[in-house]
Simulated scan of single mutants.
Amino acid sequence: MLMEETSEQYGQEQTNKSEDNTVNIGNDPVMQSAVDVLSILGSKTQVTLRAKGNSIPNAVAVANIITEKMLKGNSKIQKITLDTESAAGIGKMTSTIEILLSKF
């Protein structure tokens, strides 16, 4: 709870684990997020990375670190879904991404 208050104070999004195998990627350091994802893949066979807006490059970097460095030859990117959300009535568009990683 202290981390949430701190992140709100500085206006930064943090990496959040919303479900057992879904990770919301924010503006955390990329290696910290990759280690969080790796710990989930230790007990699960799949994990979904989700990111919005300026956090999308971080999600892509985490996926690449996992598949190309940490679990090279033992994991792959199953699916990438790109989408755009619009704010109700305002017309502002925000890009989103979901990356499904699997371990075999």
Results as ranks from 00 to 15, higher is better:
3 M>C: 07
3 M>H: 09
4 E>V: 08
9 Q>G: 11
10 Y>S: 10
10 Y>M: 14
12 Q>D: 13
13 E>Y: 13
14 Q>F: 08
16 N>Y: 15
17 K>H: 10
17 K>D: 11
18 S>K: 15
18 S>L: 15
19 E>T: 13
19 E>A: 15
20 D>W: 09
21 N>F: 07
21 N>H: 14
22 T>W: 09
24 N>H: 08
27 N>T: 12
28 D>H: 06
28 D>W: 02
29 P>R: 05
30 V>T: 14
32 Q>C: 06
32 Q>F: 09
35 V>D: 10
35 V>M: 11
38 L>P: 00
38 L>K: 00
38 L>Q: 01
43 S>N: 10
48 T>F: 07
49 L>A: 03
49 L>P: 04
49 L>W: 07
50 R>C: 09
50 R>P: 01
51 A>D: 05
54 N>Y: 04
55 S>R: 06
56 I>Q: 03
57 P>V: 07
57 P>E: 03
58 N>A: 15
58 N>E: 01
58 N>C: 01
59 A>K: 03
64 N>I: 04
64 N>P: 04
64 N>V: 02
65 I>Q: 03
68 E>H: 08
68 E>R: 15
68 E>C: 07
69 K>N: 14
71 L>A: 03
73 G>W: 10
73 G>N: 13
74 N>T: 08
77 I>D: 02
78 Q>A: 15
79 K>Y: 13
80 I>L: 04
80 I>K: 11
82 L>I: 08
82 L>Q: 12
83 D>N: 13
83 D>L: 11
86 S>H: 12
87 A>H: 04
90 I>V: 15
90 I>M: 14
92 K>A: 14
93 M>I: 14
95 S>I: 05
96 T>H: 10
96 T>E: 08
96 T>L: 10
97 I>L: 06
98 E>M: 08
98 E>T: 12
98 E>Y: 09
98 E>D: 14
99 I>Y: 05
100 L>T: 14
100 L>H: 07
100 L>E: 12
101 L>V: 04
101 L>M: 10
101 L>C: 04
102 S>H: 07
104 F>E: 14
